[in-house]
Amino acid sequence: MSIFSRLLNVFGCSRLHHDIAEELNSHLDEAIESGLDPIEARRSFGSVLRYREQSRDAKVVVCMDSLRADVIFGWRQIRKKPAISIAIVLSLGLAMGSCTAVFRLIDALLLRPLPVSHADRLYAMVLRGIGPDGTSRDSDSNEYPQFLKMRSAVRDDAELIAASWAERTDLTFRSDSETEKAYRQYVSAWMFDQLALNQRLDVCCARVMI
């Protein structure tokens, strides 16, 4: 008997029980036909139910059978108290939905890498200096000539990309009849190649050579 047959027997319990019971009853009939007293034959035979369960365990996948029995028992319990069951299901659904939403947020903000090439080697550079009040101050702004000098200095080890502040502006596409709001940001021309953004359809960029 293959594992497939044993799995099918999990869902065909009534037929299996009937077959095993019929076989055990046939044994009793043979014992009575051979001359044994019917009462004595049944007494010496013992517990039919126990033998049936032992034989059944050999013909089913026991863990699947236990799972089936538990599912049926659980379904019956749910049907006994529908109001409480609905409240529990809704609460569980709400909790799972909330957890999923929070995880998606954390995944998008913190866990998932940026959709650029070599995201693990992308750094934001700041300049640390002394402010007018004499305290240490970090700044991520640069004059363009200074940026070019720094880029040239680290050319063998790194690539610097400049990006301006993003500002909200009006954009038109194909015709002036429809104006849309978008964020505009000036970046270094080589940024697209460095970050492999050339195939990204959701990044609308215009390369302007200065």
């Binding site: 008997m1 095993i20 076989e23 044994h27 013992g46 126990r50 033998y51 034989s55 050999a58 013909k59």
Partner: peptide, 17 residues
Amino acid sequence: VEEGSLYPALHRMEEAG
């Protein structure tokens, strides 16, 4: 042979082929 031993053994051997 007790009936309680025989039939489980028969069904086990049948399952084993």
